[in-house]
Design a protein around this nucleic acid. Structure first.
Lengths: 197, 197
DNA sequence: GTCTATATGAAGATAGAC
DNA sequence: GTCTATCTTCATATAGAC
């Protein structure tokens, strides 16, 4: 049983390293050599844990999905109002300011890359958005029972993805702050009105 | 002199093919073989025209920049009000709907890719944004002499980049239409007020 | 200017000893 | 389970005949 535990530990090491590399370099620029170096697992051994790079990607996304779901569950447990939950989501770019400036959004940049020529892998990566979509829609429904939760959610994602992208292109920290404030003001205006676009 | 003309023609062929490939596959996934196939120029000959792939990129961006500048000059000549000029810019995703759905924004996706690990090449690609930034700021200054043209421009870019990205991820044509309408409504509201954030 | 052949290197992946 | 050696493929890039 100790052997199995050790295997799991190494697997997690590989996944942790791959997760970061995927964010910092993208899928196609991340090599097995990179993963070996970053995880301190010999290059050849990696193939014992993951047969292909596609498998690594799928495992990383799977790992990210469960982390996200845990995070969202925690937010629901600790944050009372849907308005504050939505603002918590919008606050991510501020919490991750340095990373966002350098590498953009880990979900958006990966989907942008894979969407061009690797549609099978993009499908896997897109699930990250699906998790947030579902949760955000629920929050908007609570905030505005008569509103169009899907359109509101898409609008929110458009603005957060756009700000992450532009912030990373221009390296502008103030851009993030302004846009986050502006989005929060929009959310406030929603919660005060009965209906809105 | 005929020889020189032929050279220029082939050069343009290569650039045209590379421009499309850069958009459809991204820089790192675009190979010289791809360019050879798409331009009908033998693989080996490409190196006579461009010594490295970086040189191809720089030439494509250069080509794009002059096209953009021509387009913006034409808009200034044919569209009277700054409001309508800004709306013309916002309308690009609608004109390029099919491409945007499949490949996102050619500027945004390229910068997203190159920003991760190829900062020297990203600098070149970023110039595409600089051209629009400069022009859009001028239009905002005309629209709202007392407004913060830089922040307004960034906000516009955030929203257009965000919509191109999300539209390509979710393949949602209606998303583009809704967001474009929403941006236009925002521009209208700006032109009616004296000052705004 | 054009084309073929080839050098060179990196990356994904496998075989098989230990 | 671990590690080394190696296969294969494909990419950038160059040399040199025509």
């Amino acid at each position: 049983m100790a052997a199995r535990e050790k295997t799991e530990t190494i697997r997690r090491q590989i996944l942790q390293a791959s997760d970061n590399l995927l964010y910092h370099k993208g899928f196609n620029q991340m090599s097995f050599s990179d993963i070996a170096d970053a995880s301190s697992v010999p290059r050849g051994n990696l193939y014992y844990y993951f047969k292909t790079k596609e498998e690594v990607l799928a495992a990383v996304i799977d790992h990210r999905l469960s982390n996200m779901k845990n995070m969202l569950r925690e937010w629901e447990a600790t944050i009372d109002s849907p308005l504050d939950r939505l603002k918590r989501y919008v606050g991510i770019p501020l919490n991750e300011l340095d990373n966002v400036m350098r590498y953009g959004c880990p979900m958006g940049s990966l989907n942008s890359e894979l969407g061009k020529t690797q549609s099978d892998l993009k499908k896997i990566s897109k699930m990250q958005f699906d998790v947030f979509m579902f949760w955000l829609q629920n929050q908007f429904r609570l905030l505005q029972p008569d509103g169009d939760a899907k359109t509101l959610t898409m609008h929110l994602l458009v603005r957060t993805q756009g700000l992450a992208l532009m912030a990373s292109i221009y390296g502008d920290r103030n851009l993030v702050k302004w846009e986050v404030e502006s989005i929060n003001a929009w959310l406030d205006s929603l919660s005060h009105s009965v209906i809105s676009a």
